[in-house]
Every structure is written in C-alpha cells, then in structure tokens.
Simulated assay, not measured.
Amino acid sequence: MATIKDIAERAGVSIATVSRVLNYDDTLNVTDNTKKKVFEIAQELEYINNKTRKSKVQTYKIGIKREYSDKEEMEDTYYFLIRNTIEKIFLEERIDFFNIGNEEDYDRLKSLDGIIVIGSLNANDIDNYKLRNKNIVFVDYAPEDDEFDCVIVDLAKAVKKALEYLINLGHKNIGFIGGRDQKEQGNIELIDNREKAFYDYMRLKGILNEEYIRLGNFTPASGYKLTKDILDSGKYPTAFIMANDSMAIGAYKAIQEKGLRIPEDISIIGFNDISTAQYIVPALTTLRVHTEFISESAVNLLMERVKDGRKISKKVIVPTKLVIRESCRMI
C-alpha cells in the first residue's frame, strides 16, 4: 500500500507538502503544477487516504485491563475518567474492545491485537501477559521492563511545584495525606511516587516532619480519617498536600468538624482537579492531571504498535498544572 512518503519521493517534495495537498489545505503556498503532480502520483500509486481507510474499517480487538473496581473508580474518578475516554476513542474509531477480568484466561490474550493496562500488574501477570501479547501499553505505571510502552504523570515535579508554592506562601509545617496500592509487586508494597517526592523534597529543605504524614487509601473516607487522626493529636501543620482531590474532600470535613477554617487555619492542595474541585467551599487549589491527553496518548501508542508494527518502546511523561483557587493563603 502506497504511503505519503512514497508520493513525496516521486514528486520531489516534502511529506508535509504531500499531506497538505491531499487534505486540500488552502493555506499551502505551492504551484498548481505541483498540486497536480502530487494528485497524479497519488492516483498512479493507488494511495488511500486515512478517511477512506477508516470507511473500509479494519476491525481490531483490544483488551482493557484495569486495576480498580467500579466502586473504587467512583470514589476516585481519576481512573474512571481515563478508562471512559479510552473507551470513547475506541467507539469513535470503531475499534472492538472489552474489559479483561481478574480471572481472564491468559491464552485468550493471544487473540487480541493489543492491550491497555490502566494501573499496575504484579510481576507474575506482567510475565504472563508479555508471553502472550507484545502490544501492551501501561497507563499511570512504568514497569521496570523497558520493552513496554507507558504513559505516566510527572508526579515528582508536580509535588515539587505544590511544595514550592506553599513554601513561597510562608508555610514550613506541611503535611501529606496519601495512600498505597493494595496490590503487591514481588511481595513489596508499591510506594506512591507522590509520597516519595514529598519525602525527598522536604528532606532536601530540612523541614520534614513525619508526624504530619498519614497513609491509607485514595478515598474521601480515608482522607477524612487520616486528617482527623492528625488533628486529634492536637498538633497539626499549617498546610496539607493531598494525594488526590477525593481525599481532600474528606479532609475538608475533618477540618471543619474540628472548628478550623480553610485556608485561614489550614491550607489544602489536592491532586487531579476533578470536576467538583472548583465547586467545594472554598474552591480547591489542586494539581491538574490531563486525563484526556493521557488517554489519547495511550491509544496512539497502542495503535502505532498494532497498525504500524513499531517495536521500540516509548515512554510518555505528562506534566501537571497547578490550578490556584481559594484553599491556600499566605502566612
């Protein structure tokens, strides 16, 4: 099947020029003779553009393996938004997909064109998946095996960004409310990179106080319980970084029940920028994670392997944006 590159070589022009000619780009500044030449070569080589290819629809079958249950996705909508966007893209592209269950027969993986894993897999599952399918993309997790594609968030820079913001506001006593995945990787509990980044940066600044750190799971109930535990000790920080917005919502409740105010008594920074973050009172300052871009990147990586046969692995690192609202103040 002819490609744009083939046409470009025959016509003696760039690939970009061919693409713009075939897509009828009116802003392209080339002669009519060049356009005619490109169209004639494309016809001679029987070039089929993307729209025509889509209309002929080659069916692919993709498996989606997710780490979190429906209940967990509703409590922390980060993974729900990623999965929902991935499924929406597949529906729009008319690509068949299904969710891979926990008890899925490994041999069934051989029949799939590719797999997207949302979250982590344990070492045994990674080995079994790899034996049966080479087209695997991980979302929000980077396996040690560099043969896999992955899309991850730059959590270290995100936490540093949040801490620098709080320190510039005058905060030195800063707490962290986070969680750890319940799954184990080689019998070792997975440490969340936000937690590690918090420890590293606070140690570097010489202001780490482990009395202000609590770990549970990534739910509003856990955020409430862990924050309440620190407040009940009678000694608490002037600011908290929460591992996600859901935990921040729980922290709001604990702080308000204690008769304290946000941000007058305690400043809060969340993580993810879920839709409700801007509507709680006061509106939550948070680190926006671009879930739609993460989902699109994961699908693009997978289809590069499935359609184009790419063998070399890629890692996409997605930045975050600090969205400043009303939950932090200068002291």
Rank of each mutant, 00 (worst) to 15 (best):
25 D>I: 13
52 T>K: 11
307 K>A: 05
186 G>L: 04
111 S>D: 15
260 L>S: 00
258 K>H: 00
27 T>Y: 09
52 T>L: 06
44 E>S: 11
308 D>F: 07
185 Q>T: 11
122 N>L: 07
49 N>Q: 07
108 R>F: 10
84 N>V: 00
72 E>I: 04
275 S>E: 14
93 E>P: 04
267 S>H: 02
153 V>W: 00
85 T>Y: 14
18 V>M: 15
137 V>P: 11
309 G>F: 12
193 N>E: 15
197 A>D: 10
195 E>A: 08
90 F>K: 08
325 R>I: 01
27 T>N: 15
202 M>E: 04
211 E>P: 09
161 K>F: 04
158 A>E: 08
95 I>C: 10
187 N>T: 07
109 L>H: 12
232 D>W: 03
324 I>Y: 12
279 Y>P: 03
282 P>Q: 01
70 D>K: 12
319 P>S: 02
123 A>S: 13
4 I>K: 14
175 G>Q: 01
326 E>L: 01
173 N>T: 10
16 A>T: 15
245 D>T: 03
291 T>V: 04
217 N>P: 00
204 L>N: 15
318 V>M: 12
36 K>V: 00
25 D>L: 09
327 S>H: 08
164 E>D: 13
323 V>D: 05
192 D>Y: 10
311 K>D: 03
79 Y>F: 15
175 G>Y: 00
233 S>W: 01
124 N>R: 14
83 R>G: 08
21 V>D: 11
274 I>M: 12
31 T>G: 09
124 N>L: 07
163 L>R: 05
133 N>W: 03
72 E>D: 11
281 V>C: 10
229 D>E: 15
192 D>N: 14
311 K>A: 06
302 L>D: 05
263 P>W: 02
155 L>S: 13
179 G>T: 08
102 N>C: 01
229 D>K: 07
196 K>D: 12
127 D>R: 15
287 L>M: 08
251 A>R: 04
83 R>C: 14
232 D>Q: 14
301 L>W: 08
267 S>K: 01
59 T>N: 12
195 E>G: 09
42 A>W: 08
191 I>D: 10
31 T>C: 04
140 D>K: 13
92 E>S: 14
